[in-house]
Amino acid sequence: MISNQVLQSTIDSLKGITRVDIAIADIDGKILSSTFSDEQYTESMVSSFADSQADSQAVGGYQFFKIFDEHQLEYVLIAKGDTDDVYMVGKLASFQIQTLLVAYKEKFDKDNFIKNLLLDNLLLVDIYNRAKKLHIDIGVKRVVYIIETDKGSNDSGALDALKTLFATKTKDFVTAVDEKNVIVVKEVKPNESAEELYHVGETILDMLETEAMIHARVSFGTVVNEIKDVSKSYKEAKMALEVGKIFYEDRNIIAYNRLGIGRLIYQLPLPLCKMFIKEIFTTISPDEFDEETLTTINKFFENNLNVSETSRQLYIHRNTLVYRLDKLQRSTGLDLRVFDDAITFKIALMVVKYMKYMESIDY
């Protein structure tokens, strides 16, 4: 269904060209848009014409025309006057509204197709058949972006802003499949690099924050070569968004192929995680580490296990840092200065973070 605003804008333009007053009514006679200053026709006149067999009719100084959507009566158009010129204007206006109906229906069908494609609700043969019918190129490379805003997709601001941003890109699609996120299915040019894909995420964030005043996080999957694989990129983007919340809270843009070990941990079953933590931390729980110890550990990892650089950035003596690492070794049995122990400890801390996150969403 075409919005009343679009109908009004269309007939205003037509009147500006033809100088003929036009109105659009539904099949019950209710006026949806009009350029008339004095409406002398009645709802009963419109509904009576709608019930008749005629496609057009002149009654009481007005011309009435039916507008169909695939043989289903959708609107009645009224043109003021009973001359041949008014009749031609009415026919042209009816054709214009009919064309708009087709365009809006195709747009709606494309949106439904993209939603079902993302959710993996289509058979392979249906994907290709419907894409061909909707004139969607099946061989274009694409990538899926998920934009999670602080207001959710129920707020039209983010959806409208993103549709405006990608309005000139005829092979890009903007939609929403749930109440939380907005989805962008973007065409990827043959020579487009990973850095350029990341830059698209930056552009999205910048536009939402400066123009729509919306805070958001963006994730995106890997590039797929065919339309049938778009759901794969969507699932990857969803995982990237979740993994990013757990392990990379400071990042507003998260790429699936940059998740590192966090992606592996995210897919581990919780019983296995609990077993692993019990084996690593036999005498002390990670929750018992004080803030000073955690700061020391994180800074040591940030500096690639370099004692001198870590002590310098923490503004402590080298021997003080060595003392803290020795103390940690005595309580956990792991020496962070040894690469294997450092890797084990790092993974263990990430597993603990993952477990806490999963427990928080369960409750």
Results as ranks from 00 to 15, higher is better:
residue 120 D to K: 13
residue 71 H to F: 00
residue 265 I to R: 09
residue 171 K to D: 09
residue 75 Y to Q: 01
residue 341 D to I: 00
residue 232 K to V: 11
residue 297 I to E: 11
residue 353 K to G: 00
residue 154 N to Q: 07
residue 54 A to W: 00
residue 149 T to K: 15
residue 200 V to F: 11
residue 255 A to R: 15
residue 18 T to V: 10
residue 30 K to A: 05
residue 352 V to C: 00
residue 283 T to H: 07
residue 54 A to Y: 06
residue 47 S to P: 04
residue 100 L to M: 09
residue 109 D to T: 05
residue 41 Y to E: 03
residue 181 N to Y: 04
residue 225 N to R: 10
residue 152 G to L: 05
residue 92 L to R: 03
residue 317 H to K: 08
residue 27 I to F: 01
residue 84 D to K: 15
residue 10 T to P: 10
residue 96 Q to M: 12
residue 1 M to L: 12
residue 107 K to I: 07
residue 119 L to E: 12
residue 339 F to G: 10
residue 251 R to E: 10
residue 320 T to A: 06
residue 291 E to A: 15
residue 268 L to W: 13
residue 226 E to W: 03
residue 338 V to A: 11
residue 20 V to W: 01
residue 323 Y to T: 13
residue 216 A to D: 09
residue 237 A to M: 08
residue 90 G to T: 14
residue 171 K to C: 00
residue 270 L to H: 04
residue 178 D to K: 05
residue 19 R to C: 01
residue 34 S to Y: 12
residue 70 E to V: 02
residue 154 N to T: 04
residue 201 G to L: 02
residue 180 K to D: 14
residue 36 F to Y: 13
residue 178 D to Y: 08
residue 182 V to G: 12
residue 98 Q to C: 00
residue 86 V to F: 06
residue 299 K to E: 08
residue 361 I to H: 09
residue 200 V to W: 08
residue 146 I to V: 12
residue 226 E to F: 12
residue 74 E to V: 06
residue 206 D to C: 11
residue 32 L to D: 02
residue 36 F to S: 14
residue 143 V to H: 04
residue 295 T to D: 14
residue 117 L to N: 13
residue 284 I to R: 14
residue 172 D to R: 07
residue 135 H to D: 12
residue 54 A to I: 00
residue 337 R to L: 01
residue 229 D to T: 01
residue 206 D to A: 12
residue 257 N to Y: 07
residue 350 M to D: 06
residue 355 M to H: 01
residue 160 D to F: 01
